[in-house]
Each structure stands twice: as C-alpha cells, then as structure tokens.
C-alpha cells in the first residue's frame, strides 16, 4: 500500500518543528515512531500534506531522574524503556506494559510520547500514565505548558494538543519507598492490542496499609479511564482480599466496554474486575519487596 503524497520536513530543532507546524496548521502531522501514523496513512485514514519528522531533533531522547521526577523525552523508544535501569528499579508497571507492546521491531521505533499523543484508548501507556499521575510537558508557538494526564485525553483519537504543539516530555513523580506497580493485559496473541488492560500502582504506609493507589484501564471505553472510585476505596485499607475485590468491582463499574471482534461487553467488564484484582495483588507484593 502506498501512502498519499506529502511534503517531507526534517527540522533540526524543536523551534523549527513548531514553526513548521504553525505554518501548515491542520495540514501537518508530526512523525515520530510512525507505527500508528504510517499504517493510518496507508489505509487513507490520514492524509497529511506535510510530514514533520522529529526523529532527527537532538536532545529529545533523555530518560533521567531529576527533581523528584522521572523525565522521559519525546524520542525515547519502547526499547529504551525496556533496557532502562531506572525503569526496572522504580517503575515495574511501565516495564510490564512496555514488554507487552507490539514486538521487538515496533518497540525499536515506537515512542511513549507518540503512544500518548495518538489518543487511542487501545494503547497501553495512557492507562499506565493515569495510574502513575504523570504530567505532560507540551511546547508550542505560545510557549510551554504542563498538562496533568487527567486533562490530556479529550475524546477518541483527540487530545489536549493543539496543531502547533509538540509533546516534549512525559514527567512522572518518583514513587515513595514501599511502592509497587503492575500491568495486566489480556490479549488474543502476543503483541496485539489489549482486549482489556489494567494498570495498578500502590504505595504502602509504615503499617503495610495502602496509602495511595492509582488505577488505569485500557481499551474499555472511548477514552482511557482512570478508575477513581476504585482508587479512593483503597486508601487507608489493609490490602486483603475483601479490599481488592471491592476495588475490582468499582473498576469494572467505571469501565464502558463495547462488544467487538475481540470480546463481548459483559466478558470485558468481568475481566476488568479480575485483572484489577490481580494487578493490585502483584503491585502490593512488589511494594512489599517481592515480585
């Protein structure tokens, strides 16, 4: 399949990229990993007249801990996350999710920023970032702004990004001691998009009770979902079966799945409950120092 024609730009700086986006408005699209955009272009779901390839912009591939945050630059690929020592040590939730995204070839190209910017509720990072309370650093012709992840997803394939803005950095608070996370993804075959995915992150207090919890849901609604009632139900509680069961039920209640070629709606809702319980159980076990 041959994508529609376009004019190609490979700016050497973020400022030049933003200039091109401003100049061409809705006619332009950013190209990063290309693993959502190029397939869409081949199928004629997207036909941008201008492609602004940001892959050659230096200084956007950093992954570092700074000022109590993990800062992930726009050109960090899934494979970089997979290989990162900080991710392995402090963000098992991200590592779980990354390993289950597509396959090695795709992970060598696909970026976490593109995964979020695409606004696809079937993608895995949105739920992960909702569970981790990430912030997104966005730069456009009007300057820089920081948007909390809860304000980023606007509709299916629609985000808070304006046409002249670049998602420059994903910023995640470093979890306190005694924290853990896990991602559970039900898929038809390895590397496929989720039938249902659940991201869970917990922090325990000195007594081993849950201090705070984050829960994000993948592919069970028109947008990625933060299961807020389930999160709130866990605060201050001992992480026993009754507590986790209740959170699982609240997460299932928050989901809005539809029947499709992956699975019927009631099955998906039941799986949200079960995967929430499993993800929380593993998150708690990791917070306690286990696996």
């Amino acid at each position: 399949m041959i994508p529609p024609s376009f004019e190609y730009h490979a700016p050497g700086s973020l400022a030049d990229a933003i200039g091109l986006l401003k100049q061409h408005g809705d006619e332009a699209k950013i190209l990063s990993g290309g693993h959502s955009l190029v397939p869409l272009m081949k199928m004629r779901f997207a036909a941008p007249a201008h492609i602004v390839d940001i892959n050659d912009i230096p200084g956007l591939d950093y992954l570092k801990e700074e000022g109590g945050h993990l800062r992930i630059g726009a050109l960090v690929r899934e494979a970089d996350l997979e290989a990162s020592a900080v991710i392995a040590a402090k963000f098992p939730l991200i590592l779980d999710a990354t390993k289950l995204i597509a396959d090695p070839q795709v992970r060598n190209r696909a970026t976490i920023a593109g995964n979020l910017a695409h606004g696809d509720p079937a993608n895995d990072h949105p739920a992960v970032m909702l569970a981790l309370d990430a912030e997104l650093v966005i730069e456009g012709s009007g300057g820089e702004r920081v948007v909390p992840i809860t304000k980023f997803f606007v509709d299916t394939f629609e985000t808070a990004l304006a046409s002249d803005e670049v998602l420059k950095e994903v910023r995640i608070p470093i979890p306190p001691a005694k924290s853990g996370g896990a991602y559970f993804k039900l898929e038809r075959r390895v590397g496929d998009f989720a039938i249902v995915g659940v991201a869970a992150q917990v922090s325990l207090d000195g007594a081993g009770n849950i201090q705070s919890a984050g829960i994000g849901l993948t592919n069970v609604g028109p947008m990625p979902i933060k299961a807020e009632a389930a999160e709130a139900s866990l605060a201050g509680k001992a992480p026993n079966d009754a507590t986790l069961q209740q959170a699982g039920q609240l997460a299932a209640d928050a989901s809005k799945p539809v029947t499709d070629n992956r699975a019927p709606e009631d099955y998906k809702r039941a799986m949200v409950k079960e995967l929430t319980i499993r993800a929380l159980r593993r998150a708690v076990s990791r917070a306690e120092g286990g696996n």
Partner: peptide
C-alpha cells in the same frame, strides 16, 4: 502483510531491526 504486522520486511537500520514497510526511505 504491508500493514506492520508480519515482519517479512524486517531489516536493520543503524543496527536495530525495524519493519521496512513502516519507515519512509527518506528517513
């Protein structure tokens, strides 16, 4: 497949495997 799924088009770009049906030559 020509849809980024099968890996038949896999080549190495600067030492890393990629699907050459999902990258523009100009890149």
């Amino acid at each position: 497949c020509d849809t980024s799924n099968c890996g038949a088009c896999t080549v190495m770009l600067d030492g890393k495997i990629i699907k050459s049906c999902t990258l523009f030559a100009v890149q």
